[in-house]
């Protein structure tokens, strides 16, 4: 049996699962979003895209996901560089990974404990005689949501990025220094070609995840504007399932955005690296 055939057979259970569940789920969401009797095939989409609620939710969703993903990646990168440089051999750097063991909604409760108006930081500032602790939980700017995501996702970024830094050839950095390159240039020309693709990919995973995640925004967000998954869930279960096509249409739109962003970024990553990893300018 050829190695290719064998590989496909070994991967078959997963592929079948993805086809039967993931692909079918998306397909059925699409079907339910267009099957509206009499009102026209895309009436749910028209209604969705002309409604103000959707756009408010869309705005807040993109804002929260984008900011959280960017901050997680940036802080994670900073931590990895620090950890790599000074704690290469210390195993307790694994402490950074600890939040990965805590479910998202439990992390949300930690945010409430520390940052809510009745929380510990408010207590401390009140005891110090300071009034007016800012509202950071269930706030319209979703700061509590962003803080929770940061606490949960920075360890994930560290987990994904640390292997890259451990495998980097640090003599390259010395070569660059010897040629007179400053710290920023060295980061750009020695580290980024290797860590950049991973950073982009991790950002993408986080962005897509946060765009479609329900748990934290429903606990720490506000009712208006709510994040897209919260709105979709609400519509999905609205009396008599009348709003279901609308919910499904929203999910289809969200899927399209996610898939398009993913395709675009993964394509850029692939194209930029293929050239110099394999060569090919000359035979």
């Amino acid at each position: 049996m050829s190695s290719s055939v064998k590989s496909w057979l070994l991967a078959l259970p997963v592929l079948l699962f993805m086809a039967v569940f993931a692909a079918q789920g998306l397909y059925r969401a699409w079907l339910e979003s267009v099957q509206v009797d009499g009102a026209g095939l895309f009436s749910a989409y028209t209604e969705l895209l002309t409604g103000r609620t959707f756009w408010a939710s869309f705005g807040i969703s993109v804002y929260v996901s984008f900011i959280s993903a960017v901050l997680s990646v940036v802080i994670g990168l900073w931590l990895v560089r620090l950890l790599h440089r000074y704690f290469l051999r210390d195993d307790w750097k694994l402490a950074v990974w600890f939040p990965m063991l805590i479910p998202h909604f439990a992390a949300a409760y930690l945010t409430v404990l520390f940052f809510s108006p009745g929380g510990w930081f408010a207590s401390v500032s009140a005891s110090a005689g300071l009034d007016g602790f800012p509202i950071l939980v269930n706030d319209p700017l979703y700061i509590g949501v962003i803080l929770t995501y940061l606490w949960k996702e920075i360890p994930f970024v560290v987990l994904m990025l640390l292997p890259v830094y451990q495998e980097l050839d640090w003599r390259m950095e010395e070569a660059a220094r010897s040629l007179g390159a400053g710290a920023w240039t060295r980061f750009k020309t020695v580290e980024l070609p290797w860590s950049g693709p991973v950073l982009l990919e991790v950002w993408l995973i986080l962005f897509v995840f946060m765009l479609g995640a329900y748990e934290i925004p429903v606990l720490l967000g506000v009712t208006y504007p709510s994040m897209l998954p919260v709105l979709a869930f609400e519509w999905f279960y609205q009396a008599g399932w009348s709003q279901r096509p609308l919910a499904q249409a929203m999910m289809v739109v969200l899927t399209a955005i996610s898939a398009f962003t993913a395709f675009l970024l993964l394509y850029i990553i692939q194209r930029s690296r293929r050239r110099w990893l394999r060569g090919g300018m000359r035979a």
Partner: peptide
């Protein structure tokens, strides 16, 4: 600092930047 010295070090391996021509 190394980057300020008018000195360049050649290593045992070439250590060319792989992403540059």
């Amino acid at each position: 600092k190394a980057e300020q010295r008018p000195v360049v070090l050649l290593f045992q391996e070439a250590l060319l930047f792989p992403q540059l021509t």
